[in-house]
């Protein structure tokens, strides 16, 4: 008994100081996290079951908001469908492109620094300016795409005015700003030891074979990271459709984040907006969970 308390006392001296230091050092972040993340999340969860307006005042209405969202609200259904479509188009394409460009930028080519800057530049350019620029590019009458097509005698479509094409245009637009994913991929690829490639070269493996047998498998942790981050951000798509099409034509680019924004800040339906936000959160969690569970089967860690 006495030896135990002695041990406890002995441990507490170092550990106590460490604990205090630990909490002291993380306290700024922790405080912000609790006040600006945990509290708003809990508050919005409570609002999701009410008919609150912007003031946060409202009556408890049980699951009515959820029932309305899934049975009555046509815009919510359209937005969810569009968002899923966007995620399914954007995420795989972004992974393929970022891997390919990351691999290219890891090669010993001339003006490497220049190319790396060029590919990263769109990421740090103002999102609004880039979106408006793409609006001009896609313009049915004056856009450069249709101008180029007209040189070959082809009448281009009204890209952003056609509900079958508008979401695809937004995917293309977003793919242009892949700089950060490319950078992460590049770092991952550069982390692969040269000895693997040297061995492969001695064995006579071609460049393509090296990519698929060495680079790709050993980049899967980075791809996994980009996949998770890409899925989460893709589900929250807002700026591009908001600026360019405002959800149109005929709600074909309406996203869940836009429906949340409209209900919260245009219609003043805080309760309903919170309900949709939680639906989105749950869907993102499910997708992330599935991806996380699947990593055992396809992510290879070097060690």
């Amino acid at each position: 008994m006495s030896s135990m308390s002695k041990k406890k006392k002995k441990m507490s001296g170092i550990q106590k100081r460490n604990n205090i230091n630990f909490y002291l050092y993380i306290s700024p972040w922790l405080l912000f996290f609790i006040v600006l993340t945990v509290y708003p999340m809990l508050k919005s969860l409570s609002l999701a079951f009410t008919d609150s307006d912007f003031s946060g005042k409202g009556n408890f209405i049980g699951l009515n908001n959820f029932i309305q969202a899934f049975t009555v609200d046509v815009q919510f259904k359209a937005a969810f469908r569009n968002t899923i479509c966007y995620v399914l188009m954007y995420v795989p394409l972004s992974l393929i492109l970022s891997f390919f460009l990351g691999w290219l930028l890891s090669r010993k080519v001339k003006l490497l620094g220049f190319w790396r800057t060029v590919f990263y530049m769109p990421y740090i350019t103002s999102g609004v300016a880039v979106t408006i620029l793409w609006g001009w590019i896609f313009n049915g009458t004056y856009g450069i795409i249709n101008y180029v097509l007209s040189l070959f005698g082809i009448t281009g479509p009204n890209w952003l005015g056609d509900k079958r094409l508008a979401l695809g245009c937004i995917v293309v637009m977003c793919l242009w700003s892949l700089g950060n994913q490319i950078l992460i991929m590049l770092a991952g690829i550069q982390d692969i030891p040269d000895s693997y490639y040297e061995s492969a070269q001695i064995d006579g493996a071609s460049t393509i074979r090296q990519v698929f047998a060495i680079t790709l498998p050993l980049s899967t942790p980075t791809i996994f990271f980009n996949l998770v981050i890409g899925v989460i951000s893709a589900f929250q798509l807002f700026n591009q459709p908001y600026i360019l099409t405002n959800g149109g034509p005929v709600d074909s680019t309406l996203t869940v984040a836009m429906v949340i924004f409209r209900n919260a800040f245009q219609y003043g339906k805080m309760g309903y907006a919170s309900c949709i936000a939680w639906c989105l959160f749950i869907v993102i969690m499910i997708f992330t969970g599935i991806i996380n569970a699947s990593q055992k089967k396809w992510v290879f860690y070097d060690n």
Binding site: G135, Y142, G248, P249
Partner: peptide, 10 residues
């Protein structure tokens, strides 16, 4: 009337 959906660009 012009069929221009990209009103924000033109």
């Amino acid at each position: 009337v012009p069929n221009d959906t990209a009103l924000e660009t033109i």
